[in-house]
Design a binder for these strands. Structure first.
Lengths: 233, 233, 233, 233
DNA sequence: AATGAATGAGTTTTCATTCAT
DNA sequence: CATGAATGAAAACTCATTCAT
């Protein structure tokens, strides 16, 4: 013990690799053992069952997520409001000066960076969770619980403003889910595939995605009210 | 001869139900048989293997998708350009008058409606395909092939304009994928869950999502250029 | 009926082909149907079961065999004895003159020809029977029953003489079985393989085998007594 | 750890028993498990498939056969030639004296003994191989490869002489196959059946068969040339 | 005479899990 | 901690046979 680089860690690592690659159901315990370079029976020394490995991975992700304070942006936004660098008028943000805009952009970007870094770092387990969430209601709950950590609507002043464009309250949640959280998950889940397809570096892709987030955010903030079609849509 | 309303159809229907519910791997052939109300062996009379059922479902989806012309919007857009109802200046769309705006909105919404209707109608198989795409490269290819049917960037003048906001060409593809196609897929895949969670009707959700698509689209079209942060992001 | 070249015959023919090729157990009823170009269910119109097809083939073989009089040689041999063309002295055949030898050879050869022609004509079913006899005692009985049709020991004067070389009576049966009947069966069973391997024509092989039978027969008839090793063999 | 005297050996033994009894196709894996007194799944712990058990048995037979030097007789024959105890004149063997004949007989018998012992010891697997060879070309090849270990024609001076009786060279191979190798295989394959039928002891049958081999061999060696019938045979 | 559809009872194979050491 | 051996339960798939027409 000590020298043999922690069998448990190897089992966990192999599990992440395989679950995210082939899915939980299609992954065999024997494959995990083989990939981890340990005997199959050892897995049952550390985990009660195959299911428990999955639970362990997801729980770890949840804990990691919880330990990250993602709403720090609000603190800074409020500070900017207090310092009169920004103001909200007629449902739109107004900036005191060019420097205020710059500061605002920096803050919002740093906020997005944190989220993107988190999903990229944990992309394999996120992919596992996403896949499982598509078929298991328990994991679906966990996935949605996870998205609460991106408090765009409730706490984040920015999107809150932007989402006022939507007449119904629920629509805000819908927009948040399908155009912010789902893209984030999708980015994490398909990152490696898209990377090899686009032949861009990890860094470039990350930057591009962040810029896309900016486009959406800014556009929304400064965007005009939408008159929803009252047709038969 | 009348009672057994096409056993094959019942098998297919049961497969869609179960695959989309529990995932392909977790669905047992015996469960399909039970759900379809036929003998297990009959499934192998119509399909060579469990895998072939999946292939059949996906192939059918692909064929259905192919038969739908999703880029009709371009035709109408071009017509509006010809009729001088809209013009493109400085990378932004300019409208001749209020009526032009209205017509444009109608067109774009009808375009989105078609896509949304397609993904909602086929949401179960789409969910299956999405789940499988997350673990099987063959299905990943099919999923991406499917997204080619939403020709937002290449052929669609609207997003083309909007996406000029992105400095690099590749970013357009990234934006298209993660903020249009993935949300669409996500909407289809999580529709039923979100519906029961939000307690909104199918019609309402569809309308809300369409409005969200409008928000994004309009905001982008009329949006100001984004100066990407040049920091170490 | 009449035009459609007899479905039953096609089923039988396909069965012979497949049973002899892959063995009874490994042949599927569906394969027979396919090879015969009829629906699987039709097979059950003509035969109660797959087993019954096999029984039918073997029974047909037995009947064909029974209808051939294979011991006609004895008649002619006895005639030669009566006509003093041959005589038996000291356990060896003595011939009256060269012409007698010639006549004798002709007779014996014509006898062998009949047998060889029979096994070659029926080689496919014989192969089936041989294979089945190796695992099923009922067919083993039928195979041995079939060999009674080659009455070399009991009725055939020639080998009877030759086999007097063997001290024990049973040995005659052993010799007959392993050095006459088994070779005959082997010749029939492996004929097609040996033919394509040796690249000789069917006619040539048949002639060669007949010559080999002569060699054995003649050698035995004129052969010297064998003093069996009395060692521990 | 002592009680379970090697489960793998028990599986192999049960497989040999059952395959040779009922044939490979008709033997169920569950039967092997039951006969071996182990769980069905254990069979798949040691063998990838039912087919692999068969392959293992045949391969083992091939290896055993290869490890036995069956042509040692040639060494002794050559020695007798060198010692002038035998000579070859006019295509026939001539012996120096009575003692030479006796020595020769001893040698040839010891040669046959080895072969017969080998086929008797491995009669069950040989029977399996024979049965499979009748339907699978791969096993046919292996069967014929096995017969190469009885180098009667090419290396064995005795039969080489004898076979000169045959005009065509190929006939030698035919004779070797159908009147030496096939009888040997037949003896092995039908040994147990013939034994219980003849009610002779194993020892007696073995001795009888060896004597039959002697009869054939001696007769051939001292036999007169055969004038093949030039008729329409 | 002929067949497409259907199935019960098996068949091989798999796999998560346990046990003895 | 670690493992080779072992297994019960179930999985996918097969196949001879039957049924309705």
């Amino acid at each position: 013990m000590g020298t043999e680089i922690d069998s448990k860690a190897k089992i966990i690592s192999a599990s992440i690799q395989l679950f995210s690659q082939k899915g939980y159901d299609a992954t065999r315990v024997s494959e995990i053992a083989e990939a981890a370079g340990v005997a199959k029976a050892l897995i049952y020394y550390y985990f009660r069952s195959k299911k428990e490995i999955l639970d362990y991975l997801v729980q770890n992700l949840m804990n990691d997520a919880a330990s990250i304070t993602l709403d720090f942006i609000n603190v800074q936004l409020n500070q900017m409001l207090t310092e009169k660098k920004i103001a909200i008028e007629n449902g739109k943000l107004h900036f005191a000066d060019e420097q205020a805009i710059q500061e605002f952009m920096t803050n919002i970007n740093s906020y997005h960076q944190r989220i993107v870094d988190f999903v990229l770092t944990n992309r394999q387990v996120l992919r596992i969770l996403l896949t499982e969430a598509l078929k298991d209601s328990k994991h679906r709950q966990q996935l949605f619980q996870l998205t609460k950590l991106t408090p765009l609507v409730d706490k984040n002043l920015i999107l809150k403003k932007a989402l006022e464009n939507f007449p119904q309250a629920e629509n805000a949640a819908l927009f948040k889910l399908f155009f912010f959280q789902i893209p984030l998950l999708g980015f994490a889940a398909f990152f490696d595939d898209y990377k090899s397809f686009s032949q861009q570096s990890e860094k470039e892709l990350r930057a591009s995605f962040l810029r896309a987030l900016q486009v959406i955010t800014i556009s929304l903030i400064t965007g005009s009210k939408v008159k929803p079609n009252e047709g038969e849509c």
